[in-house]
Amino acid sequence: MGVAQSWRTQSSRYRLAGSKCNECKNYYFPVTVVCSNCESDNLEVINFKGTGKLVEWTRVDEGASGFDHVVPYYFAIIQLDEGVRLSAQLVSVMDESKITDGMPVRMTFRKLMESTREGIIEYGFKAEPVNPI
């Protein structure tokens, strides 16, 4: 990720900034400049609360570059309370057998991936169980 890209996506990675269409009331994650539903550009930036539920997950044993040394890790699709879905790693799992569908999760703050020793560090959201498991 380039420095400018890292910088401009910060609000969505750090604070779950998204967009709400003031015309059709659709929510978007991340921030967008046009509503793909009603084509309106009357959108407002909102921060999602960061709580939601686990839709589906998998334990990744074969990671891509930047993730290859941290396997296994859990990758999940999360549905936020506002209704929007996103992809996130699932962390703070002490016992994999206790992960359940629909489990309440909240967003925590982590490094997204291993970075080189000299580049910028990419931070962002990852999900964790609301009730420790």
Partner: peptide, 8 residues
């Protein structure tokens, strides 16, 4: 954890 540091 491997993705935690002083900032997180």
């Amino acid at each position: 954890d491997m993705d935690e540091d002083t900032a997180t």
